[in-house]
C-alpha cells in the first residue's frame, strides 16, 4: 500500500553543506531501494529551534515528500534515529488530507459554476422574490 508521507528532519547546524547533501542522497537511496518514490526533497535552510534539542539551538531543516508503504517508513525512521547528525524528525501521512482538500476544491468549483451561471439572467430574480414577499406580508 503506497501512501504519501512527509518526512521532515533536523540536522545539526555545524554540518557542512556537502555532507548534508550526501546524507540526503543516502536517505533517497534507501527509499528507492525499499520500493518507494521520492517525490521531492527540499532543504528549508537554517532555522532557530523553538527549544533546545540535543544542546543545539538551531538546525538545518530538510523535508522529504515520499510515496511509500508503512514498513518502508518504519525503516526510514529507524535509520533517522540511528544516524548521528539528525537531531529530530517527524513523519506525517498526507494522502488523506490531500484527498480531503481535493474534495473541497471540487465542491467549491461546482459551486462557483452554479453561482456564475445564474448571474447573467439577473432580471427574473427580483420578480421571483417579489411574490414571496407579498405572500409573507
Amino acid at each position: 500500500m503506497q501512501r504519501t508521507y512527509e518526512i521532515m528532519f533536523i540536522v545539526r547546524p555545524d554540518m557542512p553543506e556537502e555532507e548534508l547533501d550526501k546524507l540526503i542522497a543516502a536517505f533517497d537511496a534507501t527509499i528507492v531501494q525499499g520500493g518507494g518514490v521520492v517525490k521531492s526533497t527540499e532543504k528549508l535552510g537554517r532555522r532557530k529551534l523553538a527549544y533546545m534539542v540535543k544542546k543545539c539551538n538551531d538546525g538545518q531543516f530538510v523535508l522529504l515528500t515520499v510515496l511509500a508503504g508503512g514498513s518502508l517508513v518504519a525503516e526510514i525512521e529507524r535509520r533517522l534515529r540511528v544516524s548521528e547528525p539528525v537531531i529530530k524528525f517527524i513523519s506525517v501521512r498526507m494522502d488523506e488530507e490531500e484527498k480531503r482538500l481535493a474534495k473541497i476544491k471540487a465542491i467549491r468549483a461546482t459551486r462557483k459554476k452554479l453561482s456564475a451561471a445564474p448571474a447573467p439572467p439577473a432580471e427574473p430574480a427580483p420578480s421571483v422574490a417579489a411574490p414571496t414577499e407579498a405572500a409573507s406580508a
Binding site: 521532515m8 533536523i10 532555522r47 529551534l49 523553538a50 527549544y51 534539542v53 538546525g59 529530530k88 524528525f89 517527524i90 506525517v92
Partner: peptide, 14 residues
C-alpha cells in the same frame, strides 16, 4: 502539536 514536535513551535516559552 506536530509543529511543537519538530521544534517549530515551543511547548512552553522559556
Amino acid at each position: 502539536k506536530q509543529a511543537r514536535n519538530i521544534a517549530l513551535l515551543p511547548f512552553a516559552a522559556r
